[in-house]
Simulated assay, not measured.
Amino acid sequence: MSFTESNRTSQKMSVNAVSCENRNGIGLVLISNPPVNAISSEVVAGLRGALVAFEADANARALVIHCEGRTFVAGGDIASFESLEFDTLPFSALLTQLDASPRLVVATMHGTVLGGGLELAMACHYRVALPDTRFGMPEVKLGLLPGSQGTQRLPRLAGVPLALSLILTGQSVSASDALAAGIINEIAEGDPLAIGVGAAERLVHAKTQPQRSSSLKIAVGAATTQALAEAGARAAKKPAYPALGAIVRAVEAAVNLPFEAGETVEAREFDQLRLSSTSRALRHLFFAERAAARIPGLKGDVRAR
Rank of each mutant, 00 (worst) to 15 (best):
N59F: 05
A180M: 07
I184N: 02
Q226I: 05
V128W: 02
K238Y: 06
V106T: 05
G116E: 08
L95H: 02
A50I: 03
E269K: 09
L162M: 14
N59K: 09
A74D: 08
Q226E: 14
E263G: 13
A56V: 04
A100C: 11
E260G: 11
R280F: 09
T9C: 10
S165H: 11
V113T: 12
S41L: 05
M137N: 00
M109F: 01
N33I: 03
R127W: 00
E189K: 12
I295T: 14
T225F: 04
S19M: 02
E260K: 14
R134Y: 08
V29R: 00
G75K: 03
A188C: 06
T264A: 15
G221R: 06
G232D: 04
F81T: 13
G262R: 03
I78T: 13
N59R: 09
L94G: 05
V251F: 04
I247A: 08
L216Y: 00
T4N: 11
S40V: 13
P155H: 01
F259D: 08
R61K: 15
R61G: 07
G69V: 08
F286R: 03
V18I: 02
A281W: 02
A45E: 14
I247T: 07
P102T: 09
S174R: 06
L144Q: 11
S41Q: 08
S6I: 12
E289I: 12
V220S: 09
